[in-house]
Amino acid sequence: MIPLLSFGLADTVRCLLGPRIVLRNSNVRVTRPRTGDGTVWHTSPPSRLVSAPTVIACLIYLDAADEQTGPLLMVPGSHHRPDRPPAADDPFDDQVTIQVQPGEVVLMDAALWHRGGTNHSERARRLLTLQLSSIFMPEFNFEPSLPSADYQRLLEQARSSEDEPLLELLGHGGLNPISARYWPHRRRTDDSLPRGRHC
């Protein structure tokens, strides 16, 4: 959550998606050295809305993504395609290669076909991935996970300070993604968490 709070990523995404957004998913990806591992082509679910994008992926690189550790590969314009990419690592004629330095952030329409290249180096490739979406997007299709102690502390801090923008990102403020109505302006007594809204 530190990148969201300290570096204005949420505000940047609000400029792209509109004022009502939620943290859809977050994870850490580690590609270990000397493994030849990479990721297959992937994308977020297609948008239900006419306008695009509805999900922004924020890739925060902790290590270099270069020719040795595996660059970021994308297919320009693929976010307009109605189909999904094949779950493979075969190259496309129109793919582009992007090398990223530690500390750099890539923001992209999550519907863009992309993947991480293979790591043949002596170094690991680590990155944080945050998906921020319009509240009108469906739930993500990953396995649900229990909230961490850090998430619970952050939620309590946001509740006690009545930090509406942060409560909205955590799925406990702003608009309710199920009813599209505003949450009541009172402290919620239940600790139930909307699926997919925690890190």
Rank of each mutant, 00 (worst) to 15 (best):
R84N: 09
V50K: 10
D163Y: 04
D90H: 12
V105E: 01
D37W: 08
L112A: 08
H120G: 02
L127S: 02
M137G: 00
N141R: 10
P85C: 10
E164W: 11
R48L: 13
S121W: 01
V75D: 02
V100S: 00
Q152L: 15
V50W: 07
L154N: 00
Y151C: 05
P102E: 02
R159W: 04
T129A: 07
I56S: 07
R32L: 11
A124M: 05
A57L: 11
R123C: 01
Q131N: 14
R81E: 14
L154D: 01
T69D: 04
F136T: 03
V96G: 05
Q101I: 01
P76K: 08
L112K: 06
D83A: 12
D90F: 08
R153Q: 11
E104F: 02
Q152E: 14
Q99T: 13
I98R: 15
R126A: 00
R81S: 13
R123K: 07
L146R: 14
E67K: 13
E143T: 12
C58T: 06
A111I: 04
S145T: 15
L112G: 04
D63T: 06
S161L: 13
T39H: 12
H114P: 06
G103M: 06
D37Y: 09
A110L: 02
E104Q: 14
A87I: 09
R153C: 02
N141S: 12
N119R: 03
F92L: 14
C58R: 02
E104H: 09
L62H: 14
M74L: 15
Q68T: 09
Q68P: 00
V105C: 14
E104L: 03
V55Q: 14
G117K: 03
P86I: 12
T69A: 08
Q95D: 13
G116V: 06
G103H: 07
F92G: 07
L146H: 07
Q157C: 13
T54S: 14
D109C: 10
A57W: 03
L112C: 10
R153V: 04
V106Y: 04
W41F: 09
R126D: 01
M74K: 12
A88C: 13
F142Q: 09
Q68F: 06
V55R: 15
T129S: 06
D89V: 10
R123M: 03
E104C: 06
P144I: 04
T118S: 15
L127Y: 05
L112T: 15
T97Q: 12
R84G: 07
L112Q: 07
V55C: 15
S51M: 11
A65Y: 05
G117I: 05
L62G: 04
L128V: 06
D163N: 15
N119M: 05
D109W: 08
S78Q: 13
L62K: 06
S47D: 13
T129D: 01
P86L: 10
P144D: 14
L146N: 09
E156V: 05
R159S: 00
S47L: 06
A149M: 07
D90G: 13
L112S: 08
A158Q: 02
T54R: 14
T118C: 15
F140M: 07
R32D: 04
T43Q: 09
E156I: 03
R126H: 08
L59G: 10
Q101G: 01
R84D: 11
L132P: 01
H79S: 14
D150F: 08
R48W: 06
A149Q: 11
V100M: 11
S78V: 05
V50R: 11
P147Q: 08
I60P: 00
Q131Y: 12
D93P: 07
A52P: 01
P102K: 04
